[in-house]
């Protein structure tokens, strides 16, 4: 999978690149308008991350040119501007998603994977991890083909972790992803622990070969359960 990051802020570019490389993606970068234009029309990418404010031009211009050329697929806009107008223009021009800075790397991962899956549909929308399967269409978790009942929130949490296998998801990122903007009090994430505890119990009882690992009290990651 090849991903192009168009972003003018070098530090941010570096962060995203590091994170995506951990996911085994092939990452290329462009940090100004001209380089970006050159790259998008010469190579094919599975996904393009596009910043709107660029030196020498606007990301939206790149997007409209891509659309004209019939290549405006798999684009995720990443912008510091949380403007509804930009969002609508971007989506109208064919962008798949719009992510406002600052974002969590886990969130970016999840969005990229969703976009990639959406565009490479092989009929089934299933996430596999060891002996577990998450059916995103039916919203079902199966362990060794056995259905494990989950409530809505639990399913959302698990999906997010499946899209970020072996990666840290901070409590903040998880709260923002699952509970949306409604939860934003940095200190009140204790309730997340109970949600995780419930899912953990269900995974253990069903002999799933995956487990949640707490990461320094700041978050969790889902990993293969080596003990089983």
């Amino acid at each position: 999978m090849k991903i192009l990051i168009i972003e003018d802020e070098p530090e941010l570019l570096e962060n995203i690149k590091n994170s995506l490389e951990k996911e085994q993606f092939l990452v290329e970068t462009a940090s100004d308008y001209n380089t970006a234009i050159d790259k998008v029309f010469v190579y094919n990418y599975d996904c393009i991350l596009l910043d709107i404010m660029l030196p020498n031009g606007s990301g939206l211009d790149i997007l409209s040119q891509l659309k004209k050329a019939g290549k405006g697929k798999h684009v995720i806009i990443i912008s510091a501007k949380d403007s509804l107008e930009d969002k609508l223009t971007g989506l109208e021009l064919g962008a798949d998603d719009y992510l406002t800075k600052p974002f969590h790397l886990a969130e970016l991962n999840a969005r990229i994977k969703v976009v990639l899956r959406r565009n490479n549909l092989d009929g089934k929308n299933i996430l596999q991890f060891c002996n577990t399967q998450l059916d995103l269409d039916e919203r079902l978790l199966t362990v060794d083909d056995k259905n494990i009942p989950l409530n809505r929130k639990e399913f959302d949490i698990l999906t997010y972790f499946y899209l970020n296998k072996n990666r840290l998801i901070t409590k903040t990122a998880l709260a923002e992803h699952v509970w949306g903007d409604h939860i934003d009090q940095a200190d009140n994430f204790d309730f997340i622990y109970y949600q995780i505890k419930n899912i953990r119990k269900k995974l253990q009882e069903s002999n799933a070969q995956i487990k949640f690992e707490a990461v320094y009290g700041v978050g969790y990651k889902i990993v293969e359960n080596e003990a089983s």
Binding site: P102, R167, Y216, G219
Partner: peptide, 19 residues
């Protein structure tokens, strides 16, 4: 607005560091 980018960089750097 100007704080957003530095905050994004710091957040992401720390996320990577924690891994």
């Amino acid at each position: 607005h100007e704080l957003q980018t530095p905050l994004a960089i710091t957040t992401n750097k720390l996320e990577l560091l924690l891994e």
